[in-house]
Amino acid sequence: MLGSLIQQTVNALTIGSIYALIALGYTMVYGVLRMINFAHGEMFMLGAYVAFLVLSMLIGTVGAAGAIALAAAFVIAIFLVGVIGVGIERVAYKPLRNSTRLAPMLSSLGVSLSLVTGIQILAGPQPVAFPSFFPVVRYQVLGGTITSMQIGILIAAFALMFGLQFLVNRSRIGIIVRAVSESRPTAQLLGINVNGAISMVFFVGPLLGAAGGILYASYYGIMTPTMGAVIGLKAFTAAILGGIGSIPGAMLGAFILAFVEVGGTALLPVITHGMLGTEYRDVLSFAILILVLLIRPAGILGEAVSEESIVYKREF
């Protein structure tokens, strides 16, 4: 019992840390542009595909990559996806900054669809085996099984998240990004480089998402062109759960969601006497999303947006 508890906890932490990496991108983009970036899930997918490509270019065959090649592929791939993210923002969202709220969201839907089909055309729609980025050793801890892969994923994900925290809270660029999130017009009036801040967000967000994608593909040993859709939706759920726009909120939401999911998957069939099987895991996450929005639309750490604040901001 204790063993399986530990095992499930580590499972939830692993999945949660991957959700968190993706959720951060949603929340940061929403923070600066007040836009839902439907193409963000595709950055996650691109991460895996680009890493695969980089790896095969580095060493010819993907199978027997050494640690250095893997690390290099990881870093190069997430960097490349960050650059792609910036490029997409320039082309598909920037021209729409002053049009309706719907326009950039629709544009991101188009980007999402194009990326998925583009990869389907280039790499084929079928799933592709993905190399393991960490050695797989099983440890028995108090009767539960934990793999070195999980530990590796946790370390990588947490390192990235701490890096982001540092960037946002301590660096100049982080302060700029936060200023732009607070109020774009005011930041503009103060002479802050708003475009630079937005580009930064569209670099860091996809970079983290891509890292999540590589870790995820490596965890499950597989990648598909459509892998970003459902995960993206869940990460977005996590971002809303934690309070959209809030960086700590996104991480908190991701872990809560992961724990509910892992716990729910284990308990659902037991509680309902097999009426509802594990297939309903995704239903559970979406049901949580809807519930959270009903009970606390601002999320756990988010600030409430009422007409008052909207009217007030408009007066300036």
Binding site: R101, V230, T237, D282, F286, A287, L293
Partner: peptide, 18 residues
């Protein structure tokens, strides 16, 4: 809020399908 509607309806569509 308007933007949430997109994501909730999307989730709802998936729930129905699942």
């Amino acid at each position: 809020r308007g933007d949430y509607l997109a994501i909730v309806t999307l989730g709802f569509g998936e729930i129905i399908r699942i």
